[in-house]
Amino acid sequence: MNTPRPLTLDVNHAEHTLCVAPDTPLLYILRNDLACNGPKYGCGLGQCGACTVLVDGLAARACVLPVKAVLGRAVTTLEGLGTPQRPDPVQQAFIDEQAAQCGYCLNGMIMTAKALLADNPAPSEDEIREALRFNLCRCGTHVEIVRAVQRAALLQRRNEAGAQP
């Protein structure tokens, strides 16, 4: 049944109850209803990766995921990673490496890198390339993006080592 009904979503550690049709793509809800504009609408077919968010810590393409699939799961968007004042290590690394030209793909690159580093805190260059294989960038900043992910891995490891007593 695809008639709108109240659904409760967990987005960036906050609960939102919205009256929406359960089959609506998650991306529409995030952008239109929750004003999370980090995830971008690219191809709308799950192919370019610009819309990537994290669902229970795993990368997911929000443009093809019906919102009902994330009920009871934690959704994290780019907004949930860090703030301009306190960016996430991955965000900081992308700033440091200036790994963007037009920047449209950056949300997907950062979120996919975030998921990758959660799984594999010290990926090799080949592993980074493989992980980002299905995230498309038309400007050609791939070299900087790979460097940014390597730096992010370093930053994250350093942060964790610093946090421990």
């Binding site: 990368a59 493989e130 980002l132």
Partner: peptide, 12 residues
């Protein structure tokens, strides 16, 4: 992106 199990990122 979703069906080539040996390639790309682990996904939801």
């Amino acid at each position: 992106v979703c069906h080539q199990s040996g390639q790309g990122m682990r996904q939801f």
